[in-house]
Design a protein around this nucleic acid. Structure first.
Lengths: 215, 215
DNA sequence: TGACAGACAACTGTATACAATTTGAGGACG
DNA sequence: CGTCCTCAAATTGTATACAGTTGTCTGTCA
């Protein structure tokens, strides 16, 4: 594994767990010192994060953590709705029985996850196993970007145990729909899945912004 | 303008005009020598092209010009169909009269373009002016990526004067639909626009691949 | 007091030099 | 004759050093 990749995952985690405030400048040398690498791999990692949309870049000024607004969040979820439906429509007819077995294993892995990091990773593997079954590489890449952009909020969502158990139940329903090869129902379940998540995150965002007025 | 940006545009042009064969390795030092810069900005440019999908990267192996297959091409166009329809649905209700005036000017610029480079750039400005009117930044970014990925083929398409005049006629129809605020018709026109282009490119690809069997 | 010019500090961008990895050629061995 | 191992050349990845840009701070003048 290269230093740039390690720095990338570490930085992404930092941004996602909220260790870095939105709008904050990411000073290259500080990051380099923090992770014990030089500035070159740091720059590469920052560039990749820029293409993912987590940070933004201004030439000769630097890199900054992008601040996601509520409208941005709804846009991401709307685009996910469109593209995931497309992926599911392409994937379901192509599913074989051993694919289904794989999905079941991945769903169990989500339930068995220890910490938050594991949980989000397992959750992602579960969903993308389905998306990748569509055999549309570009589509998967776009979806990955959209998921990256909303990862911050997803880990927020998973911190509540109420949400975790809801997710487990929804995954079980999805598995049933997959077994039945019921494409439209599966899409509807995904829409509901996202709707719950976005509604919860939106309420959190609205609540969070208030107290900051008097710091 | 930074060296990385200059290298990026130069490299992109090289890939798009076909100066670099698909699958070919992009040796960093050669590129650096060619453009009179060091390898660092070259790497940054290559990374950006990777995020655009024009080149692909294998750690410790290098960067390679991605070879677009026919299935890849259809995927790109299918995704454009989905996302452009979404953009148009969001944009049309928000259009103001001066927006329409802008579009008309941009359409004229497409007709007045001198060379191929100008033409593709003007064409892009025309279409993206509409997409951007949707006010969905993420969506615009995704569309830009998809357009980047199919730029090679678009310049191929524009080389034929038959296609050029067809495009001009189609743009005129689009302008009419925009003036009428006829969203669904505008979407249908876009679908037809793309269908023509993809059909022509596909036929070219099929024709091109034959003679290479006996090099 | 306020506006403006110049210098300084902080940071980014780039070049050069060095380390690590891959790959292919050549030879030893079954 | 084919397979596996070794090693060197080529290329990528990374560190360090230097150049260029931006923004701020201070001091001067109206």
């Amino acid at each position: 594994m290269t230093a740039a990749e390690r720095t990338l995952t570490a930085l992404r985690a930092d941004v996602l767990t909220g260790g870095l405030a939105p709008g904050e400048q990411l000073v290259q040398e500080d990051i380099a010192d923090k992770y014990g690498v030089s500035r070159v791999p740091v720059r590469e990692a920052l560039q990749l994060l820029t293409s993912e949309g987590l940070v933004s870049h201004v030439p000769h000024r630097g890199y900054f953590v992008t601040e996601l607004s509520i409208s941005d969040l709804s846009e991401v979820y709307r685009l996910r709705q469109l593209l995931e439906a497309e992926a599911i429509r392409a994937a379901v007819p192509a599913l074989r029985d051993d694919d289904v077995t794989t999905f079941e294993a991945l769903a169990i892995a989500v339930q068995d996850a220890d910490d938050l990091q594991d949980l989000t990773a397992a959750n992602r593997r579960f969903h993308f196993a389905l998306f990748e079954a569509a055999g549309m590489g570009r589509l998967t890449r776009l979806l990955r970007q959209l998921w990256d952009a909303s990862d911050v909020y997803r880990s927020l969502y998973f911190q509540q145990s109420v949400n975790r158990s809801r997710v487990h139940a929804e995954h079980a329903e999805m598995l049933a729909a997959i077994r039945d090869r019921d494409t439209e129902h599966l899409i509807a379940l995904h829409d509901a899945h996202r709707a719950h998540s976005v509604a919860w995150v939106r309420s959190q965002l609205l609540r969070q912004t208030r107290p900051e007025e008097t710091p």
